Amino acid sequence: MAYIINPDRNTPWNGLPELPIDSEQYQTIEVYEQLGNTKAAIGRLQGRSIVIPNQGILVNSISLQEAKASSAIENIFTTDDELYKAFSEQQSQPQGATKEILNYREALWDGYHYLSNGGAIDRDYFIRMYRIVSQFSDGIRTPIAQIYIKQGGSGPNAGKAHYTPPRGAGVVEQKLDNLIEFLNNDDKFPLDPLLKMAIGHFQFEAIHPFRDGNGRTGRIFNIHYLTQKGLLDYPILFLSRYIMEHKEAYYDGLAGISQRGSWKNWILYMLKAVEETATLTYHKINDIIAAKDAILDAIVQKGDIMRPELLVEAIFTQPFTRVKHLTDQGAYAENTARKYLDQLSDMGILEKRAVSRNVYYLNLELYRILSE
């Protein structure tokens, strides 16, 4: 059965076909070969991540990078320094791009805990994620919201409608409910979760259920769906980096379905994104562990630092460390914490930076690994 495409970019696509799509759209040798490679890569990542004693080393650092890359897809940019410093200041009020990126990270973790504690990927889940990333308090958009996706750039078609999502009383809700049933009912729709994630991501973006933040919400969903299905224990997949580096192909893939019914190319793109991202994250984990072990050995050999394991755990939980991080954890008294961080700075492990009235200690190796 041919996929019914979007006939007019300027008219709401109320004819967006419900899921599931016809199996002929993805039952190809090419798709299944890529699916095998992707499952192997994400399995290797999962096997490596579960042996790390302190998941905070990963979840703080890699989730911040994921948040930064996802926001960059929406042309929301900040520097690593601004981002990490804002995160290290738990009581501060970041503004602009940094605030939006930290909102993404908050949604990433809020949704993970929501699902881990018995929640489901349902309307409440999607609205919850949207509200965190957008900081709006409404829910599914009403027909009053004249939403359409504009063409970018500066050419003759810039600003014109590139795509107009469904609109009308109950239309968006009905299509979102169909997506939710497809994702959750594995008896009725027995499909590999990686294929469901790829199909579900397009469908969510095509429905475009919210006034803002649909791209970020959809990318958060990708990671949550993989954790919910047991492919990952923690949301540590650095997926948005691949999409950012292949941004044009990402949007071409979305348009390819709505305008040409080209599901195979989209599914191959998403599977390749997960494969390469899983491999990238796997190597980052190995690099972080190797750097952590090397630094711990150097500190132990120095011999005059008490509880060196606690100190190393602290400086690898996030790139920027402050004295208060160590005192708040009860690891050391204030003077001792400052003395030890200064010693690591003298050893070339940390770089001491004074910003306004605050002093930060940058873990040079962790910063390098995350920036690569």
Results as ranks from 00 to 15, higher is better:
His325Leu: 00
Phe221Asn: 04
Gly253Val: 05
Met270Gln: 13
Glu248Trp: 00
Ile267Arg: 12
Asp328Ile: 00
Phe238Pro: 01
Gln329Asn: 06
Ile236His: 14
Gln228Leu: 09
Ile243Thr: 09
Leu271Ile: 10
Ala331Ile: 03
Met270Ala: 07
Phe316Tyr: 14
Thr321Asp: 00
His283Asp: 12
Ser240Tyr: 02
Leu310Gln: 07
Leu254Pro: 12
Thr336Leu: 09
Glu248Met: 08
Ile315Thr: 05
Phe238Asp: 10
Ala273Glu: 07
Leu310Pro: 00
Asp252Ala: 12
Asn335Leu: 14
Lys229Arg: 10
Ile285Val: 15
Phe238Tyr: 14
Ala337Gln: 04
Lys324Asp: 11
Ala331Arg: 02
Gln301Met: 08
Ala249Asp: 13
Leu268Val: 01
Gln259His: 06
Tyr332Ser: 12
Gln343Ile: 13
Asp346Lys: 11
Met347Gln: 12
Gly261Met: 10
Leu344Glu: 07
Lys302Thr: 01
Gln301Trp: 04
Ser240Thr: 02
Leu239Cys: 02
Phe221Pro: 02
Thr317Asp: 05
Lys272Asp: 15
Ala337Gly: 06
Ala298Gly: 00
Glu275Ala: 09
Thr281Asp: 04
Gly256Tyr: 05
His246Asn: 14
Phe316Gly: 10
Ser262Cys: 01
Lys284Leu: 14
Ile223Thr: 13
Leu271Lys: 13
Ala249Cys: 01
Asp297Gly: 04
Lys302Phe: 12
Ala249Gln: 15
Gly348Cys: 04
Ala278Leu: 05
Ser258Asn: 07
Leu239Asn: 04
Ile299Pro: 05
Leu232Trp: 09
Leu232Ser: 08
Asn265Val: 03
Leu311Trp: 05
Ala291Gln: 11
His246Pro: 03
Arg338Met: 06
Ala290Ser: 15
Thr336Gly: 10
Ala291Ile: 05
Asp297Pro: 00
Gly218Met: 03
Asp287Arg: 10
Ala278Cys: 03
Gly218Ala: 02
Ala290Cys: 02
Ala294Thr: 15
Glu313Arg: 11
Glu309Ile: 05
Ala337Cys: 03
Met306Lys: 14
